[in-house]
Amino acid sequence: MSAAAPAPRVFFREAIGRALAEAMGSDPTLVLFGQDIGRFGGAYREFTGLFERFGAQRVRDTPVAEAAMIGIGVGAAAAGLRALVSITYMDFLMLGLDPLVNYAAKACYKTGGQVRVPLVVKATAGARGQGVAHSQCIEAWLMSVPGLTVVAPATVADAYGLLKSALRHDGPVVFVDHKRLYPTAGELPTDAAEVPFGQARVCRRGDAVTLVAHAYMVRVALAAADELAREGIACDVVDLRSLAPLDVATLAASVARTGALVTVEEGQATCGVGAEVAARVREARGGEPFRVARVAALPAPVSSNPILEAACLPDAARVTTAVRTLLS
């Protein structure tokens, strides 16, 4: 057996671009839709080179019309193509929820299995100074839609692996790419492994408390875990990766060891990812007691004002405070 080549280090956008390019190359039915994804290469340059390589028929710049973008992607996928629709700000996904939720998520069921919708909606989430309608993380809304898969990578490898899985799935998938992950880089495994849905990743081992996060908040949770480690508090940090389906077994196993659960998310706490995680772990743990706290955005819109934005969103300090309070 020859030694594996070292994993190349790439930007987050390059992991997405490579997954897209490989899928476009192997699946001639895959068509991409989005605003400025053609020659411009996408808002984050994640589509760079695809237009030149695969052409205007398969890499389609759309008008600014999210309902039509998603609806056309859904219809095209339902009629035999495979579609990826890029939504530049997850806030604008609201404009296209009707075809996604009322049609795509229900098509297989309502037609008795006649119609499948192999669709990926890539929705870029998160706050980065752009204000109340360009900062939201609404993935928790989508977790309750039967028929929808929702994934949210935190690393370069998972961005690649989850997108590859999404582009092979035969139902609708929402792929949440957090905009604060775009400046990051990481190793992209040369074996180019797909990441299956419904498998969380334990990214740090500890026995004092379980921190659960997804997307950019995994980095915040890891930073908090670093700080807590200096105080002798060892955190188990679980990256959900997949929000729907949830990997309850991994979460419950972690909480079984630590007896304490702190969820961290950039969206709202009410009916949020953490609320669902806590409830599902509670159900899985039966009568076994454990402590729970949720760290999430404060119940306010996320301002473009940097002071107010920072005040609204979770950071490592809020996570460490929540952990210390919970454990004290």
């Binding site: 068509v31 028929q57 309902a67 039509a68 998603i70 609806g71 056309i72 992607g73 859904v74 219809g75 095209a76 996928a77 339902a78 009629a79 035999g80 193509l81 579609a83 009707d98 075809p99 009322n102 049609y103």
Partner: peptide, 15 residues
């Protein structure tokens, strides 16, 4: 709700 879907179906058929 069927209008945008129909446009997608039309695209698939044309391709």
């Amino acid at each position: 709700g069927n209008l945008t879907i129909a446009a997608g179906v039309a695209l698939a058929l044309s391709m």
